[in-house]
């Protein structure tokens, strides 16, 4: 499975939800391919979803770190 969160150190609290997200993206890609969706649209869709989630994940990690140091 593609590691869409490379270079991000994911804390234990968030590793489960991040892994599930990767699995769900993989399922989506498989579903879109089966349905015959154009490869370019799949690529664009996945890029957008991953970029968006990645940004949210980084925000969540920063928030958790703030809590730990509070």
């Amino acid at each position: 499975m593609l590691d869409s969160f490379y270079e991000i150190e994911i804390p234990d609290e968030l590793s489960g939800v991040a892994t599930r997200h990767q699995q769900h993206v993989a399922e989506l890609v498989s579903g879109l391919r089966s349905f015959g969706v154009d490869d370019q649209l799949i690529e664009r869709s996945v890029d957008e979803l991953i970029a968006s989630y990645r940004a949210e994940l980084v925000t969540a990690i920063k928030r958790l770190k703030r809590h730990c140091h509070a």
């Binding site: 609290e13 968030l14 939800v17 991040a18 599930r20 997200h21 769900h24 993206v25 399922e27 989506l28 579903g31 979803l49 989630y53 949210e56 994940l57 925000t59 969540a60 928030r63 958790l64």
Partner: peptide
């Protein structure tokens, strides 16, 4: 699959 991604977003925020 898209619904699972919606829940993933909600869960990420809740856990944080």
């Amino acid at each position: 699959s898209f619904a699972s991604l919606v829940v993933d977003e909600l869960e990420l925020r809740r856990i944080a």
